[in-house]
């Protein structure tokens, strides 16, 4: 898995809700091992793109493809599309057409995990239970689809112990190990955000999609989040997709930034390039193109 090859391709993505066009003919790519940030003003369609990738929405038009394994597998994309299947597997790797898959299979088979803008933890379950639910599919297999588990087979008990170890490791990494037996709803806001990331990681993803992970965090927590995300990228070689409003997070950790406005891509490049793109500044500050320089001068860019 060489870093730098395309992991995810979004092509001509369009999403309409009745008369409203939330995303319009959007195309972009995310590279493997990158932290790719999706930014834009409120209502730009970022979360809609996320929901299309993770299968919660079926896009009106367009193709979303994800690769596992060798980059050569991209050559199969056209034939996969033509054959109308969800995925294709070759000797070198697999290719998934995400818009054709129901949401749970996107996580289960294509191994895309996500978090939510308004945190969705299982508030009445403990931290440990939250992380075990995330390992549902592998544990389900180990419990013989419940049958062996009910009869008390030892294979399931071993699998459960292993799953608890994975959960313990992630709780430790996000600094919540000593609260493992507390209900998730009792955690302070920042810790809930970290737990949601840990829970997504427990599904063993290749692509982690984070919807505004820094929202509501104080500067210190925000810095800790940066560290966590960087370590996930570097240690596990994981690719991360990020929606974020906090520019300190975006600029500091992303390798690649895509800017949306009114459902259209207005810029695509490194953080440095984005910072200096007049169109981006105009979109954020809401001025006409010709006034951008004046505004820039005023705000001291």
């Amino acid at each position: 898995m060489a870093r730098g090859d395309n992991l995810l391709k979004v092509e001509h993505l369009t999403m309409r809700f009745g008369g409203l066009v939330a995303v319009d003919n959007l195309s972009w790519q995310a590279r493997e091992g990158d932290i790719t940030a999706l930014i834009g003003p409120n209502g730009a369609g970022k979360t809609t793109v996320f929901n299309c990738i993770t299968g919660f929405y079926k896009p009106t038009e367009g193709r979303i493809a994800l690769r596992h394994g060798d980059a050569a597998v991209w050559d199969e994309l056209e034939s996969l599309t033509e054959r109308g299947k969800r995925h294709i597997t070759t000797a070198g790797g697999s290719l998934f057409q995400l818009e054709r898959m129901p949401d749970f299979l996107v996580t289960q088979q294509a191994r895309v995990a996500r978090t939510f803008q308004n945190i969705r933890l299982f508030a009445g379950m403990t931290l440990l239970e939250n992380l075990l639910v995330a390992q549902h599919n592998s544990l389900m297999l180990a419990s013989g689809y419940t049958l062996l588990g009910v009869l008390g087979f030892p294979s399931y008990r071993a699998a459960e112990r292993a799953a608890v170890d994975v959960a313990r490791e992630w709780l430790d990494r996000v600094g919540l190990l000593d609260r493992a037996d507390d209900p998730a709803g009792d955690l302070p806001y920042g810790a809930q955000r970290r737990l949601e990331i840990a829970r997504a990681m427990c599904t063993d993803p290749v692509l982690l999609c984070l919807d505004e992970p820094a929202a509501g965090l104080n500067p210190r927590e925000s810095a800790e989040l940066n560290e966590l995300l960087l370590s996930i990228r570097d240690k596990y070689g994981l690719s991360i997709l990020l929606i974020e409003h906090d520019m300190s997070v975006v600029m500091e950790i992303s390798d690649h930034v895509i800017v949306l406005d009114y459902g259209v891509k207005i810029s695509d490049g490194t953080p440095e390039e984005i910072r200096n793109d007049p169109k981006v500044i105009a979109a954020y500050l809401g001025v006409a193109d010709e006034e951008v320089e004046k505004v820039e001068a005023e705000v001291g860019l």
Binding site: T107, F122, E129, V133, N137
Partner: peptide
């Protein structure tokens, strides 16, 4: 129990 808590989160974790 996770389903009772939050169905959408369940789906995001690959649960059918």
């Amino acid at each position: 129990e996770a389903l009772r808590e939050d169905e959408i989160a369940c789906r995001s974790l690959g649960i059918n």
